[in-house]
């Protein structure tokens, strides 16, 4: 993508810092709450930019192994959901669950990493 610095990561970081350092301390009530929500949303975007590609590649690799087919993430996730509903994965529960658990853990590592520690 054609850009000079600041790159997209740096821009999102700057907006998050602005909300956090200059907006949040000066608002209260519902607006303060929504400002925190917005800061968290931007932090999710930053973590996704840093780790998302690697997680996607790993998930795609697991899906191909599990389903023994080729395709992109969206197609294979659709196929997996269909196969689970049809009972076609019942003979591979252990590998299926390992995949689902890893995928959910990655989602949380992006969305709310504190949730993975005992006390959040």
């Amino acid at each position: 993508m054609p850009t000079d610095r600041p790159n997209a990561v740096e821009l999102v970081e700057a907006v998050r810092e602005f909300l956090s350092d200059h907006v949040a301390p000066n608002v209260e009530g519902q607006l303060a709450f929504h400002t925190r929500v917005a800061i968290n949303a931007l932090a999710i975007v930053e973590r996704t930019m840093a780790q998302g590609d690697e997680m996607d590649a790993a998930e795609l690799g697991r899906l191909k192994d599990l389903l023994k087919q080729d395709g992109d993430l969206q197609a294979l996730n659709g196929e997996l959901a269909r196969a689970i509903r049809a009972g076609e994965m019942d003979d591979r529960r252990e590998t299926l669950l390992a995949h689902l658990r890893q995928t959910a853990e990655d989602k949380i590592a992006l969305a709310n990493p504190r949730y993975l520690t005992k006390r959040g």
């Binding site: 929504h34 929500v37 949303a41 853990e105 989602k107 949380i108 992006l110 709310n112 949730y115």
Partner: peptide, 15 residues
Amino acid sequence: VEKVSIGRRAAEGEY
């Protein structure tokens, strides 16, 4: 922004 953000908490129920 609140409602759309809560969407990411679906992963907590899933996890």
